[in-house]
């Protein structure tokens, strides 16, 4: 098992290198280099005299006169060794300042949605497989398809109204205005939770519906397998044997989805975040791409991809823990 994990982590390194390289290619795609854009932006804004020395310093710092691969090395080594992601010229701030708060909140929202998805989809999926074609199965299937079909922005609007009318929570954002710029405290955390459920449900519904169907189909395949009959012939009770054998094996695809459920949630969250005005990564990534703020966009892509690779690793390790056939081969 340990050997398996070490091997998987070693395999991550070339993957991550490739991702960072592709990201850098994307960053470099627009014509001109970053400093031209920066200088142009500064001059445009108010005829500010551009400090030649500062530009020269930046030019050397990012190695802009060097060949492509050297520039890539400067970029990636700054990120890896100093945590310096470059500057966003649109915001005129270091990218890292913009990044961390939003990435953190993005993942808080995504993980909450993921939790919601799995906690809701698992029992319903198991139920509708065991009670196939029962009233409950039909009701959940119907609700599931509604969940799949309703666009996120519509659901967002409906839930904003509900949260304001029923719970008296200010709609939109992840915090009440009082807490928005306050430092973290217990009160702010409670306020955060009160706001979190709306995006959590909105972002989670479509995946939940899909996952219910996946779990149902997997389990239906497994329920008729001979090993279930073996357990039954041993005298095990239905409840225990279903959870211990077919459900355990039907979990495999359920878990392996984890890896690609994460990026799907992050990118699916962009629309919801815009509608709900969430301070997460989605909207900023969108504007950064629109205004060709390439260091910002590149950093987002890099970090989200990295986290996705880590998500895949986690799901692979979970899978190996769950299924000895993977562990040993």
């Amino acid at each position: 098992m340990l050997q398996y994990i070490v091997r998987r982590i070693l395999l991550m390194i070339p993957t991550l290198l490739l991702i960072s390289f592709v990201t850098f290619v994307v960053v470099q795609l627009p014509p001109g280099d970053y400093l031209n854009a920066y200088v142009a932006a500064l001059t445009q804004e108010g005829g500010e005299t551009v400090d030649r020395e500062q530009i020269e310093m930046l030019r050397q710092r990012y190695g802009l006169d060097e060949p492509f691969l050297v520039q890539y090395w400067y970029w990636i080594s700054n990120i890896v060794f100093e945590g310096d992601f470059g500057r966003s010229f649109q915001w005129n701030q270091p990218v890292s300042d913009l990044l961390w708060g939003r990435i953190g909140l993005t993942f808080a929202v995504s993980l909450a949605s993921l939790l919601f998805v799995y906690v809701v989809a698992f029992p319903i999926g198991v139920y509708s497989a065991i009670r196939k074609y029962s009233l409950g199965d039909y009701v959940f299937t119907f609700l599931g398809f509604i969940g799949l079909a309703v666009p996120n922005f519509l659901l967002a609007l409906v839930l904003m109204v509900v949260s304001l009318q029923v719970f008296g929570v200010t709609p939109g954002g992840l915090f009440s205005p009082d807490y928005a710029s306050a430092p973290w405290s217990w009160g702010k955390f409670v306020d955060f939770l009160a706001h979190l459920w709306v995006p959590m449900i909105i972002i989670g519904t479509a995946s939940t519906a899909a996952l219910i169907r996946v779990m149902r189909a997997n389990l239906l395949d497994e329920l008729n397998k001979p090993y279930v009959e073996t357990a039954r012939a041993k005298g095990q009770s239905e409840a225990v044997l279903i959870m211990r054998y077919p459900v355990r094996i039907a979990l495999n695809p359920f878990v392996s989805r984890l890896g690609w459920e994460l990026p799907a949630l992050v990118s699916g969250a962009a629309i919801t975040s815009i509608v709900l005005n969430l301070p997460t990564a989605g909207p900023v990534l969108l504007t950064a791409l629109q205004s060709q703020d390439m260091y910002l966009a590149g950093s987002f892509i890099l970090i989200l991809s990295t986290l996705t690779v880590i998500g895949t690793l986690v799901s692979d390790i979970l899978l190996a823990w769950l299924d000895p056939r993977i562990r040993y081969s």
């Binding site: 001979p226 357990a231 041993k234 005298g235």
Partner: peptide
């Protein structure tokens, strides 16, 4: 068929072995 009385008989008084030794055992349990 779901009572504890019949379950106490299965595997204790009457046990059964099956055709497919490959698929009649759970692949993920020792």
């Amino acid at each position: 068929p779901r009572s504890s009385a019949i379950r106490a008989i299965r595997g204790a008084d009457i046990s059964m072995i099956f055709q497919e030794p490959m698929s009649s055992l759970s692949p993920v349990h020792t």
